[in-house]
Design a protein around this nucleic acid. Structure first.
Length: 428
RNA sequence: GGUGGGGUUCCCGAGUGGUCAAAGGGAUCAGACUGUAAAUCUGACGGCUCAGCCUUCGGAGGUUCAAAUCCUCCCCCCACCA
């Protein structure tokens, strides 16, 4: 089965150029393909996961992926799919962000021995000279056609308008593709569906300048069953960087997905075989919840490693009660089977505090604020009044409740805000 | 450069001198119901030493007993004209 079929089957494919030729090309060649990533933040987030997984699939099927960091284009900003001009960032920020992105991609893709490449388009873009660029590249682009591109249309019609630098984004991305085709024999570009126009522009440019046939694949925009772009939670974006978004929260993000999304997400965000995932579609209730556990475990393992995935599973069990993973469910999964019973664990976020300052002195609501469980004292007060604050599993009775000796359970106090947020205080 | 219209609490958006911490919607949070889901219902949603007080309505001044609301200057955005 070709990669293209794999990607199609798993729900990665939105549109493809030259389907038959591409199929043929992938069957008979060790293809080099690329996806661009914006270095606008130190970390990638779940929104980029489809792209990352696609590259991983390419590698698993014997092809060579290139992750192109937009160090050059990042200085400009892609207008595609955005309603506002992007913030332009500095070179120093880009360098820092690149390092973080590389570390994260390494979890998904093997960069050793050049089996995959991480390149930066700043390499060639920053060297461009304006006149030669216009003469050699610019001449191939028709303004008439560009302004008809969906990515520009919206901005043309918007109040903010489109700046000239953004307008040039398409040329630069096409130039990237051409460079990669030239220097790395990379003839396939993939990306989100908003990249279609840019990808096609690159294919055209390659045909005109190099006389070669290049290809493009776009991925659908992944939304949740609720119709929202996935990857946002109360904590903001779901980052892949464990320092910005803990593996436990990452695990929880997946467990908390919508029922209707489980099978689709298993296909997209794990490597489990499709025939097993098919079965998940018929599950309901508690069984479906178990499938979510597997989704969360596998996704966490891919992004953060096995140890973190196990810890997250353990932490979830200790907080939410026993979790059962039957042998028969998704047998291809690597999750530890059986019943995971609640045990004390050390993965719940914890803060150390001094006993003297605490007992008989502090208000319970202060603890909620200090641990970050609540954003302000008013917030904590509100939580208590609404009955969502707990100390060691007991509902906090009133805003004036103080920390007592009896609250210390083996030197620890477990705070809970609402159903899902926990924080442990270790008293010294 | 000219003329006109705007900048309100996380977002959209009402509000033209006191009854405004500011309508309504969205997002979010809590409670109930559940399965750590969705839907639904209820409540909350600037801060604090919380039946009271303090700080917010682009920025800086001013008028007034009293301003998001009036005046002056400045900054930014948009439309049309040039």
């Amino acid at each position: 089965m070709s990669v293209l079929s794999v990607l199609k089957e798993r729900g990665f494919v939105d549109a493809v150029t030259h389907t038959a030729e591409l199929e043929d090309y992938l069957e008979n060649n060790r293809a080099t393909c690329y996806i661009g990533f914006d270095p606008t933040a130190t970390s990638l987030h779940v929104g980029s996961l489809v792209c990352i997984m696609a590259l991983a699939h390419m590698q698993r099927n014997g092809h060579r992926p290139i992750a192109l960091v937009g160090g050059g284009t990042g200085l400009i900003g892609d207008p595609s799919g955005k309603t506002e001009m992007r913030q332009i960032i500095t070179q120093e920020q880009i360098d820092e962000n690149k390092a973080g992105i590389r570390a994260q991609l390494s979890r998904f893709i093997d960069f050793s021995n050049d089996q995959a490449l991480l390149l930066d388009n700043a390499q060639w873009l920053t060297k461009l000279a304006y006149i030669p660029f216009l003469r050699d590249i610019g001449r191939h682009f028709s303004i008439n056609r560009m302004i008809k591109a969906e990515s520009y249309k919206a901005r043309m019609a918007s109040e903010e308008g489109l700046t000239f630098i953004e307008f040039n984004y398409m040329l630069l991305q096409a130039y990237d593709f051409m460079k990669l085709a030239q220097n790395y024999d990379c003839l396939l570009q993939m990306g989100g569906s908003d990249q279609w126009g840019n990808i096609v522009a690159g294919i055209d440019l390659i045909r005109r300048t190099l006389g070669k046939q290049a290809f493009g694949i776009t991925f659908p925009l992944i939304t949740t069953a609720a119709g929202i772009k996935m990857g946002k939670t109360h904590k903001g974006a779901v980052w892949l960087d464990p320092d910005r978004f803990s593996p436990y929260d990452y695990y929880q993000f997946w467990v908390n997905c919508d029922d209707a999304d489980v099978a689709r997400f298993l296909a997209l965000f794990t490597f489990l075989p499709m025939h097993e995932i098919e079965q998940v579609k018929t599950l309901q209730g508690a069984d479906l919840n178990r499938a979510k556990t597997i989704l969360a475990y596998e996704a966490t393992k891919i992004a953060h490693g096995e140890t973190e995935a196990r810890n997250a599973l353990k932490a979830a069990a200790s907080v939410f009660g026993a979790i059962e993973v039957p042998d028969s469910l998704l047998p291809g999964a690597t999750i530890p089977r059986g019943v995971h019973s609640p045990v004390t664990d050390d993965t719940v976020p914890a803060t150390q505090m001094n006993e003297k300052d605490l007992v008989d002195n502090d208000l319970v609501i202060d603890l909620f604020t200090r641990t970050g469980l609540c954003s302000s004292k008013s917030d904590a007060r509100r939580l208590v009044m609404q009955g969502g604050a707990y100390v060691n599993g007991n509902r906090v009775s009133g805003v004036d409740q103080r920390v007592e000796n009896a609250d210390l359970d083996q030197g620890e106090i477990l705070l809970r805000a609402g159903k899902k947020k926990y924080h442990k205080i270790i008293v010294k």
